[in-house]
Design a protein around this nucleic acid. Sequence first.
DNA 1: GTGCGACTCGCCACAAGTGG
DNA 2: CCACTTGTGGCGAGTCGCAC
Length: 270
Amino acid sequence: MLQKPKSVKLRALRSPRKFGVAGRSCQEVLRKGCLRFQLPERGSRLCLYEDGTELTEDYFPSVADNAELVLLTSGQAWQGYVSDIGRFLSAFHEPQVGLIQATQQLLCDEQAPQRQRLLADLLHNVSQNIAAETRAEDPPWFEGLESRFQSKSGYLRYSCESRIRSYLREVSSYPSTVGAEAQEEFLRVLGSMCQKLRSVQYNGSYFDRGAKGGGRLCTPEGWFSCQGPFDMDSCLSRHSINPYSNRESRILFSTWNLDHIDGVLLCGPG
DNA sequence: GTGCGACTCGCCACAAGTGG
DNA sequence: CCACTTGTGGCGAGTCGCAC
């Protein structure tokens, strides 16, 4: 038992409010906390906000003064910052107007460049119109594109076809650079490749989120994930992009490369 | 090591050509 | 006429070689 009471900041899992509580033992803080948050003492416990470490009477004396604690009732769990990040991310399942407004407000008041950048990136990510498909639903997305493109899927399908046709055109200019003995074989392979690509509409479905599962490289919502360099199994940086979300992402997507016969996507040029 | 220009690459928009 | 295909020029980013 401590001589001097220890002060801690206490919050309950589902409460946005924090209270200062002082106690000479873990049990005392728990009792006061349960009283404050109107929670049952039986089955409840305390843990560190920081990393979720559960408090015991032995550990209690080494807890820093003014440490932030979380009061958990039976069945509840807390994993530290990770839990807060998880709750934060869950807000992105359905970006709400409130979230965008709150971010804009924070950005207005923010002076630190690093936090400005984080908020601007956040705003960029929540201000997207992924579900919209037609020009009427999302006019900014189509800014700068020819009027004949009326749907996002249609444009991206065209974009993919166009890329693959340009690869083919480039290869078609190579016969003069190979030796005479290999030219006949080169032209035969090229002809076969040309025919095959034409029969599958130059694999335009790769970029079309409306295409059947096996035919596209994205999710039904339009998310593409970098599949890493040719000599690796995956992208270590876990890059992803949704060119359907907004105009900036559509333009940025053009710097992603299409590689390999299987249509592997690589982030960034080169 | 740095700065600079030339070059390459991959994409885009646009215009012209082609076929139904 | 319209949709699709092909060719071209321009742009931005990256790379290379060279001089200092």
